[in-house]
Amino acid sequence: MCQIGAVKFRDGEPVDSFASLVKPHERLNLFEYEKHTELHHITKSDILEAPEWPEVLGRFESYFVEDLPLVAHRAANADAKMMREDCILYRMPMLENGWIDTWALAKELLPNLPNHRYKTICKHFGIDMGSYHQAVDDANGAGQILLKLAQSAHADDFEALEYAWNDAKYNVSGRFPDDLVSYAKSHERDTPNKWLEGMHPTVKKGDACVRCGKEIGDDASYTARKSGMCGTQCKAEALKQAKDLASVIKNFRPISTHYSIYS
């Protein structure tokens, strides 16, 4: 890491900022490749007299961030990851603040965008990016994205935004049958097989299969009939859909990711 920037928001408006160059740890040769300088326009000479990470983090934690949540785009793969790696190098604890990843949030709340890159979302919301890859401007952009996402979710506060986020795990329209999604939403702790059995009453010979409409015959297994279906093929297809939906729900990442190193 060679720079850090943050913007503090209050009532939807930026009210303060923090910025500092950072002298990289001696084990990190960040300026070995020209692409690093091309990315953020910071040269090796710029950071020769810059403070090292422990001093910068100390000032950032004590005088700026306090116990507020940290917001970043691709937090887990970029900002939080780099901060965590520097803390490991210096054998110091990572900030205990929660993280909100606007990339993950946008991916769930804006599923119809072609991608969820920082530039794409800024363009979608009409956000002025400032100088791209300059820490304070990027921080301000992430904050503006969070505000726009909250507005799009009709969330007036963090609690409402978290509710919208948690509800977004079921934003799978067109991918799974509506009745399956609705049932899973209210019976999330049950197994996929229990979903199917709970959705439909047990059928008997002569009844119609809830999946294909065919008449239940003598060859229908009890397991299939217990889920309202005519045979193993219908049951297998329905169970695969239910398991796929369960996987989506299980792998849904929470809004706030907490990192703790050497605590």
Rank of each mutant, 00 (worst) to 15 (best):
V172L: 07
G174Y: 02
K169G: 09
E215H: 13
G198F: 04
H200F: 11
D157C: 02
D190K: 08
Y222R: 10
D218R: 10
A224R: 03
G174K: 03
H133W: 13
V172Q: 09
E188V: 15
L147G: 04
S186W: 05
Y132R: 13
I145N: 06
L161M: 00
D190A: 08
D138E: 06
E215Q: 14
T191A: 04
A139V: 12
Y163M: 09
K148T: 03
A160Q: 13
W195L: 14
H187I: 12
A224L: 05
D156Y: 01
E215N: 14
P177H: 06
D190E: 15
S152V: 08
D167C: 08
S227F: 00
K185E: 14
W195P: 15
A153S: 12
A142C: 15
G206A: 10
M199P: 09
Q151K: 09
E215G: 15
N171D: 10
G206Y: 10
N171W: 05
A168H: 05
T202W: 07
Q134R: 14
L147H: 08
S131G: 01
E215V: 15
E215Y: 07
S152G: 06
M199I: 10
L161Q: 00
K226T: 14
G217R: 07
D178P: 01
A142M: 06
G141T: 09
Y183S: 08
S131W: 02
K204F: 04
W165K: 01
Y222N: 11
K148N: 14
K194H: 10
Q151Y: 02
C209K: 12
V203G: 01
A155C: 02
I145Y: 05
K185D: 06
P192N: 07
Y170S: 07
E215R: 14
S173P: 00
V203K: 07
A142H: 05
K226P: 06
M199G: 13
F158I: 02
C212V: 10
T223Y: 07
A160C: 03
L146K: 00
A160T: 00
S186D: 10
E215W: 05
S131H: 12
Y163N: 06
R189Q: 11
